[in-house]
Amino acid sequence: MTQQLTLEDLAGDAKRRNRERRVKVLFVAAGLVSIAVSILIILSLAGEAWSFISQVDLSSLWTVGWFPRRGLYDIPTLIIATTIIAGIGMLVAIPLGLGAAAYLAEYASPRARRWLKPTVEILAGIPSVVLGFWALTFISPEVVARIFSSAKPFTMMAAGLGVGVLITPLVATVSEDAMKAVPMSLREASYGLGADRAVTVRKVVFPAALSGIVASMILALSRAIGETMIVFMAAGAVGGALRTFNPLDPGQTMTAAIAALATGSDQVAGQGLTFQSLFFVGLLLFLITLALNSLSNRFVRKYREQY
């Protein structure tokens, strides 16, 4: 009468299960590609970087500047310039980005928001080569040179301002998401106590969204450090740079140093460890941004878990 159901029947037919297994293997393989890419990056960087650091004359790592074509590999030059440019960028992006985020999240009417947010996103979609061109042809002569008459045509200042424009939308969108994620109940509690909007934003929303805001800043910093084209074009796209702390001088960041070496003419290149130095700088850059990103991910996870 009633058919007896066996365990076999419940498992479904074998063909289906085989397909299921094959599909899963395919997906796992796809997932492993990312790990393979990571390993490839590390391998391709580490080999040459090692041959650089094991052969380089250590005294050439601390000299007047970064001139890889004549064997002067002053890493501090690159670190200082990277810090200055990323710092200027952050000084621009933090107030602009946070202000824009707070306005969009807390003040803008839904209708205004529908227009304003995509506009900020347009800014985020502008390629860095465009901002590099603009930093060189507009920010440098029209802004930097007008304020500081001693400024040269290529300055870290112009590059830093350009980087600031690049990362502002990043700070704005990630911070806005974090503020939007703060539950309405917290705001209502604050209003209930008689606080107005300004106080609520500063004393309730900001602290509650802090981990997300911090994450946005670390992400922006990492992006600023990893940005190549703006610095390469606006801070002097040449093979070397003197060590300097003056933002009105030309400078060479880690990224721009790699690009400059890779695009130059061969005639003076290829001496000694010039080629290997490129990979050493690349590895340094990789490790710094890796550390920053892990940190930022930790903060993101924190605010995701909170609410």
Partner: peptide, 18 residues
């Protein structure tokens, strides 16, 4: 080699400006 401490540029127009 030259001295390293001068303003270098890849763009000749910028050198003229300088």
């Amino acid at each position: 080699a030259t001295r390293p401490d001068y303003t270098a540029s890849a763009n000749d127009n910028v050198i003229i400006e300088g």
